[in-house]
Amino acid sequence: MTSLQKQVWAYLALLLLIPAWFLAHQNTTFIENPVTVAKALPHFLSDPATWTNIGITLARVVFGLLMGVAAGFVAAFAMTRSRLLGDVLSYYVTAALRTPSAIAAILALAIFKGSEAGYVLVVAFITFPYMAVGLRDGLASADHDLDEMAQVYHLGLLTKIQHVWAPFVAPYIFSALRNAHALAWKVIVVAEIFGAAKTGFGAKFEHAWSYMIMIEVHLWLLVFMAIVLFAEYGLIRTAEKYVFRWR
């Protein structure tokens, strides 16, 4: 199969979800008719409030991820530098890695009382261990041969970071980033619901659900999935393809 054929098949398989949705609609109480949902979609998408709420959640995810990535970097470097610090941090990271995101969300919100900082921090807290562990593994397996080459040819520190070490750990960073990104979306919605946020995707979803506005529940869900898929395939994988074009 050519790659185009494969893509066509993948899309066809995706279309199978529509009859499945329709069957679910006919046999349950809460699942809306896909046609009704499709008809409501244009109005929903042209409403500025929709995009404001998505933007708020997106901002929380992006800032939280950035903080998580930065903290992960610091932790990873610290772990490779000092043995004692490495041991201490690795217990901490292991504990953080296994903390259920719902509990992290509740804790953060209890501490920050549903302030904006709480949402960002809970995303940072949940994502940073993935970055720390991924990056540490990358640094630990660093290529001694290329280091020697760099030393023999007197490459400067910046050149070494840019051309020797960063590309080497890039695969680890990307796989950590993909995990962290997936988790960030999951935890932000949980936090927004638990935190009784007024704005953001989770708040609107919860609102629609508690008032049983089922069409809106469906619409928010659809938009959410579209955005997450776009971030994964449109942004992360595209960046990955570019970075690894030498393979």
Binding site: D145, L146, Y153, G156, T159, H163, P167, R247
Partner: peptide, 22 residues
């Protein structure tokens, strides 16, 4: 070296330029 030790993520020209730059 016994193995080439080129940077696989840089082209031939870029590999040479990195050594030249230093």
């Amino acid at each position: 070296f016994q193995s080439h030790r080129l940077l696989p993520w840089r082209t031939v020209r870029q590999n040479l330029e990195i050594a030249l730059a230093a």
